[in-house]
Design a protein around this nucleic acid. Structure first.
Length: 288
DNA sequence: CAAGAATCCTGAATGC
DNA sequence: TGCATTCAGGATTCTT
């Protein structure tokens, strides 16, 4: 499932491979993408991209903002990959993948396609400033790899909460782009129990958690993301970070660090795992 | 207001 | 082998 490292990888590779021609045709499947008022297809406005040329791509959390320009008039495509979404750039005659929902054909014989089996993803075109000024982007917490993110920020948002640590990290309003895999992995890296209520965390542990989260995300970006099943890069390649996962999806298996049997859990309807020996309580000493 | 549940969806995995 | 059931989860909406 695409989280920050996967979306960042897609961003970089789409940037590199983006078509150089203008959008000559827009095609949309008959199926609705994600439900909810602000993503309903009557608000998609994909036709605004006609005649515009793909330009700069930004990432905010798990969202991509792809700006298309025609005669200095920019429109920005907001894209969320959901659970199973993927973006590909192919020849317009290339065989159509099942669950293809959007096709943007350009004058240089290229085609940008959005494919999403479960349709949890979404697309929308608007002015860049308006996208940033409205939910969900306006509500979103700081980028974990940016300057505004720190242990102090996490503590400010989490230290008065009874919510489990893992769920705090999953909250896009607290920190942007973190999904279940990396939230669970960050808790392990910091040797913090994922179900520990935020209010019970020692103040020094927040900084440790912030540092570990950044390291995990950076490493996953270097590995071009985690492919468990569906995630693919724009060229169809997998990401290689799955082999680096320490606890996610490994309930019942042995801890790579101490050999103890990892314990699975479900919280807020989402599964995770932890090492009962190393994550039962914060360590008193920790070496970066 | 916060926390939890339900919702959307398909395909892989599991059960009988 | 085949058919029904279960599970996976991000973000939003509804309920408690």
């Amino acid at each position: 499932m695409p989280e920050l490292p996967e979306v960042e990888t897609v961003r970089r590779e789409l940037m590199r491979r983006r078509p150089r021609g203008a959008v000559a045709a827009v095609w949309r499947s008959a199926h609705a993408l994600r439900t909810g008022e602000q993503w309903h297809r009557r608000h998609e406005h994909l036709d605004r991209l006609l005649g515009a040329t793909p330009g700069r791509i930004e990432r905010r959390g798990k969202y991509l903002l792809w700006t298309f320009v025609e005669d200095h008039r920019p429109w920005t495509l907001l894209l969320h990959l959901g659970m199973t979404g993927r973006c590909e750039i192919v020849h317009p005659d290339a065989k159509l993948a099942v669950h293809t929902h959007v096709r943007l054909t350009t004058t240089d014989a290229r085609e940008i396609r959005f494919v999403d089996a479960r349709r949890f993803g979404g697309v929308r075109v608007d002015q860049r400033e308006r996208l940033y000024a409205r939910p969900p982007l306006s509500e979103m917490g700081p980028e974990p790899l940016g300057r505004d993110f720190s242990g102090a920020h996490l503590a400010e948002r989490g230290a008065r909460s009874r919510r489990p640590l893992r769920d705090i990290l999953l909250d896009q309003r607290v920190v942007a782009g973190v999904g279940n895999i990396y939230a669970v992995e960050a808790c392990f890296a910091a040797r913090l129990h994922p179900l520990l209520p935020g209010a019970r965390l020692a103040s020094s542990a927040w900084e440790r958690l912030a540092v570990c989260l950044r390291e995990i995300l950076s490493c996953a970006i270097a590995n071009k993301g985690t492919t468990l099943r569906d995630y693919r890069r724009p060229g169809g390649e997998t990401g290689e970070h799955a082999a680096a996962l320490r606890v996610y999806g490994r309930a019942g298996e042995h801890c790579h660090s101490c050999g103890a049997q990892l314990v699975g859990f479900v919280s807020s309807g989402r599964s995770g795992a932890y090492c009962p020996r190393e994550q039962n309580r914060p360590r008193t000493r920790w070496v970066a």
